[in-house]
Simulated assay, not measured.
Amino acid sequence: MNKKTNFKVAKIAKKRVETILLTAKNIRSMQDLGGGFRRAVVNPDKIVAPFTGQVFRIQVGPSRRVISAGWSFPLAPFNPNQYVTESFPENDRTWTLVISNTTATPLTVRFFVISKLA
């Protein structure tokens, strides 16, 4: 992929930002990993529209610190045109993922978050 294409996806993605604050209402499942660590699965799954990019910011509560986050495309067969272009900690409580969908079909995304007591 060339720099021009990457810039275009990033430009589109900046316009579509969704912040997900983890609460009891939007956690599909939670697993205690011991030592103050927890793994949460975000509910509901999110949709990235065709031919777009989208930024998702996942935030944990003030008593926790985000350690890592991941994703899966649970309804999609492998497609090299649907991918995460960035995944990084924005600050102690927020993990940011930038997802690109350069296909003609909507992309379902499921997020996973690991956090630790502050």
Rank of each mutant, 00 (worst) to 15 (best):
K3F: 09
T5Y: 10
F7E: 13
F7G: 04
F7V: 05
V9R: 01
V9S: 01
I12N: 14
I12M: 13
I12S: 11
A13I: 02
K15R: 14
R16M: 12
E18C: 09
T19P: 00
I20V: 15
L22T: 01
A24L: 12
N26K: 10
R28H: 11
R28E: 14
R28N: 12
S29H: 07
S29E: 14
M30E: 15
Q31W: 02
Q31F: 09
L33P: 08
G34R: 09
G36E: 11
F37M: 12
R38S: 12
R39V: 00
R39Q: 15
V41G: 02
V42K: 01
V42F: 02
Q54W: 00
V55M: 11
I58Q: 02
Q59T: 10
Q59A: 15
Q59S: 13
G61Y: 02
P62E: 14
R65M: 08
R65A: 14
R65V: 11
V66W: 01
S72F: 05
F73D: 00
A76K: 03
P77Q: 12
P77F: 05
F78W: 08
F78A: 11
N81F: 05
N81Q: 06
Y83N: 01
V84Q: 04
S87T: 05
F88C: 01
P89H: 06
P89M: 03
E90C: 07
R93K: 15
T94V: 15
W95P: 01
N101L: 04
N101P: 06
N101V: 01
A104I: 07
A104T: 10
P106N: 09
L107A: 07
I114A: 10
S115Q: 12
S115W: 07
K116W: 09
K116I: 15
